[in-house]
């Protein structure tokens, strides 16, 4: 096996060190690229939100710029429950995508009868393998994820980002 470092095997020198959004595992969250930037701004403030239609009252998830029920554009941001119950879960042994170190714990979450968001597939973090149980209560956790550059004329702006997952309520 050749030593990759020493042999300098690089398939695409032109891309060396460049950010490639086509291969980004996180969303483009900033206002320049996403009309739902408010969702991420709210996450930064510890709020888990989505859009509610002011015309028909439907609360959608994920949020959008129109209501998927009546196609109205008159929407407002509302808070969602931040706690859910683990219905079932899985701890992946093999094949987790790079960037998600195994074992990656994913759970089918139930937010309760009265929640507009009934269920969601959620990643469980801050949890050792074998620790999570069905019916456990979990809560929202917000964390920083890597930032990315945007070209603005001749300058480069750096966009900071956050994302969310869930952890056990102990």
């Amino acid at each position: 096996m050749a030593d990759l470092e020493e042999a300098k095997i690089v398939g695409t020198p032109a891309l060396d060190g460049r950010y490639i959004s086509e291969m980004d595992m996180w969303p483009l969250e900033c206002q320049e690229f996403n009309r739902l930037y408010q969702f991420y701004d709210n996450l930064r403030e510890g709020r888990f939100t989505t859009t509610k239609c002011q015309k028909c009252g439907h609360i959608a998830f994920p949020p959008g710029v129109i209501c998927p029920k009546c196609w109205s554009e008159e929407l407002e941001w509302v808070d969602l429950p931040q706690r859910a119950k683990v219905v079932t879960f899985t701890e992946t042994q093999a094949g987790a995508p790079i960037g998600f170190p195994p074992p990656i714990i994913m759970a089918w979450l139930n937010f309760g009868k009265d929640s507009p968001l009934k269920h969601l597939l959620g990643r469980i973090i801050n949890c050792a393998e074998g620790e999570l149980k069905e019916d456990d209560e979990v809560k929202l956790v917000v964390f920083e994820v890597p930032s990315h550059p945007i070209e603005i004329k001749k300058d480069t702006k750096i966009c900071d980002r956050v994302y969310y997952a869930f952890e056990r309520v102990k």
Binding site: M25, W26, P27, P62, P97, G99, M106
Partner: peptide, 25 residues
């Protein structure tokens, strides 16, 4: 190959939760 699976699901929502290859789901 496994990383491409992040684009096969709903990238900004489920994939960012780590849903890549289908076995966990």
């Amino acid at each position: 190959t496994n990383y491409t699976e992040l684009a096969v699901n709903d990238h900004d929502w489920d994939s960012a939760m780590g849903l890549g290859v289908p076995p966990p789901f």
